[in-house]
Design a protein around this nucleic acid. Structure first.
Length: 422
RNA sequence: GGAGAAAUGGCAGAGCGGUUGAAUGCGGCAGUCUUGAAAACUGUUUUAGUGAAAGCUAACGGGGGUUCGAAUCCCUCUUUCUCCGCCA
């Protein structure tokens, strides 16, 4: 969530930045300011009453010690009367705080300077392109045929065991999953990331911490009996490591990488564009997460982009990088770059990574701060990116590398695979 | 799952109704001494809100209650430890 400080001090700037998402938020911002003012007024009068009450309690203590019981009893009555007023003010304050919090939760992050106004994905800007059109046979097959032909993924079996969107990887298909995970993790380690393996269920507080709750409640699998959520991305548990934490300046930047399966309900998405591996309820992803000082976060984002570029180039996949327009960005993001790989057989771009800077939006919810040289606590910036999500990478590798006799695997995977062709 | 014990500042650990935001020790920071360091000594050392500041308010695992007054009493939840059961 945005900081009240920013809304109060840079009201117009925040309104202008939010407008890039395609909706005018000035009404919400004014409402926040109004609630904030009311809240502080209510708080001030409550605190005055509390101070008075504390003083009386102290005096009563002294009177008892001095043996002046009657006087003490008289003051008690005063205190009881004050308490009534305090109760009323406490209720009022709690209500105002709740309203303010709800309002704050509804407001998305303010896009950064570099983000352009826009409402639809068509308005995203391509900022980088690499690779050449793959050379594939005239009768090239889409991956959902290749996976069947070479027995790499069994969708039917997944339907039987769990349901649609939960594929079973088999034989060389399973081996390819494992190879990609290890390759991605090893590359991240080489780039200075620290490996963690977090839980894949998180509690409610973690869901709020990174902004999935309350915004995307319906998109997560929810075990209601334990009130735990299956993670939609490793971003959630890995970033929540730093919830309610005050970091030392010399600990920054923090660079973590983790592999997890990811779970998405994807409520309401059906049709041919979700065929095969294009969209799943369970998939594997290696995620990189950074915690950075505010002044370094955009540099950190560049570093993450370079890292993901390197992966795509080693895999030899034609790709492009898009800078998302305001309307296509996620709720919590200040700036997002999407990586899209070209699928030769489907003749379309598939999103394989989303890399974002959240500035202080998550840190504010997480209460993740660092202590500056002069001893002040300041909110950190958080960033994360997929490096990479597996299914669409697999789709592109299979489709783009197919020939008459099989599918060749990129060299970088050979040591992990133990074979070079499928 | 059953029985019992516990949760206090960066860490260890007192306090168990009335100047206790919290003793003491360790650690951290600053200073004295020293050519420098160590030792010793002195001082300092949580966070949030509000306010121009002084100050005021809140926080002793979370939430609720009793009381004029709660770290201290009661209820509840969570977590940890010990024992039993179950188990990859």
């Amino acid at each position: 969530m945005l900081t009240l400080q920013a809304i109060r001090n840079n009201t117009q700037e925040i309104i202008d930045r939010l407008a890039k998402r395609g909706h005018d938020r000035s009404g919400d911002i004014q409402e926040v300011l109004r609630l904030d003012e009311q809240k502080r007024a209510s708080q001030t009068s409550l605190e005055q009453k509390l101070a008075a009450s504390n003083n009386i309690a102290k005096e009563i203590g002294d009177l008892f010690k001095a043996g002046k019981k009657e006087k003490a009893d008289a003051r008690k009555e005063e205190s009881v009367a004050l308490k009534e007023q305090i109760k009323g003010l406490e209720t009022e304050l709690a209500e105002l705080e709740e309203q303010l919090k709800q309002k704050m939760y509804e407001i998305p992050n303010a896009p950064s300077e570099q983000v352009k106004y826009g409402k639809t994905p068509e308005e995203n800007e391509t900022v980088f392109e690499w690779g050449t059109e793959p050379v594939i046979p005239a009768d090239a097959k889409p991956h959902w045929d290749l996976t069947t032909q070479y027995k790499l993924v069994d969708f039917e079996l997944g339907n039987k065991i769990t349901g649609a969107g939960f594929p079973v990887y088999t034989g060389k298909g399973a081996r390819l999953q494992r190879a990609l995970i290890n390759f991605f993790l090893d590359e991240a380690l080489k780039a200075g990331y620290y490996e963690v393996q977090p839980p894949i269920f998180v509690n409610e507080a973690s869901g709020y911490g990174t902004g999935q709750l309350p915004d995307k409640e319906g998109q997560m699998y929810h075990s209601t009996i334990d009130n735990l959520y299956a993670i939609p991305t490793a971003e959630v548990p890995i970033t929540n490591i730093y919830r309610d934490v005050i970091l030392r300046e010399d600990e920054l930047p923090i660079k973590n990488v983790g592999y997890t399966p990811c779970f998405r309900r994807e409520a309401g998405s059906y049709g041919s564009h979700v065929r095969g591996l294009n969209r799943l309820h369970q998939f594997d992803k290696v995620e990189i997460v950074q915690i950075s000082k505010p002044e370094n976060s955009y540099e950190a984002l560049e570093g993450m982009l370079e890292h993901v570029k390197g992966l795509m180039q080693k895999l030899g996949l034609k790709f492009r990088i898009l800078r998302l327009c305001g309307g296509d960005m996620g709720f919590a993001s200040a700036l997002t770059y999407d990586f899209e790989a070209w699928s030769g057989a489907q003749q379309k771009w598939l999103e394989v990574s989303s890399t974002s800077n959240f500035e202080t939006f998550q840190a504010n919810r997480l209460k993740c701060r660092y202590k500056t040289k002069d001893g002040k606590n300041e909110l950190v910036h958080t960033l994360n990116g997929s490096a990479l999500a597996l299914p669409r990478i697999v789709a592109c590798l299979l489709e783009n590398n197919q020939d008459e006799t099989g599918i060749k695997m990129p060299e970088c995977l050979h040591p992990y695979l133990g074979f070079d062709r499928i």
